[in-house]
Design a protein around this nucleic acid. Structure first.
Lengths: 235, 235
DNA sequence: CCATCTCCGATTGCATACGATCCTGATGTG
DNA sequence: CACATCAGGATCGTATGCAATCGGAGATGG
């Protein structure tokens, strides 16, 4: 199992605060733009400002919080443009992920991939926030299976930031990755079809991004945007 | 307005120490594996341990420093495998860079690119360390020209780590990117030839990596490795 | 001679203290 | 009424202090 291993590395308090804050942000318990004073963080986690400060620093490097000098920390509030930038990089990296996976395909790897989609079928998200989280989980595991820890780290970071963007700009019920798309992608992967897998991943991420960000070609076309709102009202 | 003013960057002490340490590591004034005690860092920069600690934390997130709990910080000492991982991700991201640049080519952009290679012709590195730094500069500027700050940040991080790897495993005089390769790449870019640019960048990075890391297909072939040393002796 | 244990110095993990900086809004002036 | 000025409070930036932890040197026993 990926987590829960009794590793030797002592879980420092900073790690706990970092993890806690991270989860709170990704689950939208802390809204984008919310203030994050070091004192308050420290208080609510029962530690000193020192720890809170360090955790906030890390989150800032991951792009989940904005750190304004002498002003304090805020939950990141990415603009639509930033969102597009994030998705662009994510697409590039995940393309790399599937290319590498397809190239190094083995029976073991194929089994692990199949198991992932099988597991996905059983788990149903209970909330919008959880749906976003689960969607990211699949992509993260994919990256980890490449055996390249750096690649996995970047993908985790990007998936987190995408979650934020989706939470901000996503239309309701639009967040979950279609499990079907995941299955066809895995099928291409186990077949070792590098190009097809890459194309599928591209398409998949375009769909995810398209559900959230107004697609570039729709930009400026007011009627297209308004038509979306029209549909929402009947929901 | 979101960008574009002399935003007051109150260059905090942590920033200075961070920048100083970073430079020292990349210039190899601090060898890979060297200990970096918080006290010593603080002393030599004239600040407290607090600052040194924070700077070390940042460097750790950038992969330039290894942080061992309760033991201290060390200059990163990437293994050959880690080096390959780093280059793999870098290749993926820089491919994205050139694709984006080719897609959004404008006369202005073309001019900026030409200026870069022209400038490169004039500057000659005075030392091995400087050569590595200059080589990275070009790739970083390329990433910045995409207008995607996140992409630029990742590329900067990866170029830094590659510098470390090159410093550790590069053969002497092998570090500088051939300026010629840069020029042909820029030519493809200004022509808007997306695929050719991507291919050239791939090839270029393979060459750079190949000069440093033993290419995968050479692995285990002792004679190939030794032949390199043979040539070095006559240098 | 080697394995193990114990203690000690070095160094980190964390908390607290104090000055510095910036925003807020209350006050006075033209 | 608009605007400049200036306290006040909130919050950050940094330094310092103390206990906890780790690794290694030396002692101890086989």
């Amino acid at each position: 199992m990926p987590t829960g291993r009794k590793s030797r590395i002592p879980q420092t308090r900073t790690d706990k605060v970092h993890a806690g804050l991270r989860q709170a942000i990704l689950e939208q318990r802390l809204a984008p733009g919310a203030r994050l004073p070091e004192d308050a963080i420290g208080d609510s986690f029962g530690t000193s400002r020192t720890i809170a400060r360090e955790a906030l620093g890390r989150l800032a490097m991951e792009g989940l919080v904005d750190l304004v000098p002498n002003r304090g920390a805020f939950v990141a509030n990415p603009s639509l443009d930033e969102g597009r930038h994030i998705f662009a990089v994510r697409k590039g990296l995940e393309r790399l992920v599937v290319q590498q996976l397809a190239a190094q395909m083995t029976p073991d790897l194929a089994g692990a991939l199949q198991a992932m989609t099988d597991a996905e079928r059983k788990v149903l998200a209970k909330s919008e926030a959880e749906a976003i989280r689960l969607a990211g989980e699949f992509h993260l595991k994919l990256a980890e299976l490449t055996g390249n820890p750096l690649l996995a780290r970047y993908v985790r970071e990007l998936v987190s930031r995408c979650s934020l963007v989706l939470a901000m700009y996503g239309r309701p019920h639009s967040a979950e990755c279609g499990a079907e798309e995941h299955r066809t992608l895995v099928a291409a992967l186990v077949a070792g079809d590098r190009d097809r897998a890459a194309a599928l991943m591209d398409q998949h991420l375009d769909l995810v991004a398209g559900r959230a960000l107004i697609a570039p070609e729709q930009l400026g076309d007011v009627r297209t945007i308004l038509s979306d709102f029209l549909r929402e009202t009947s929901d």
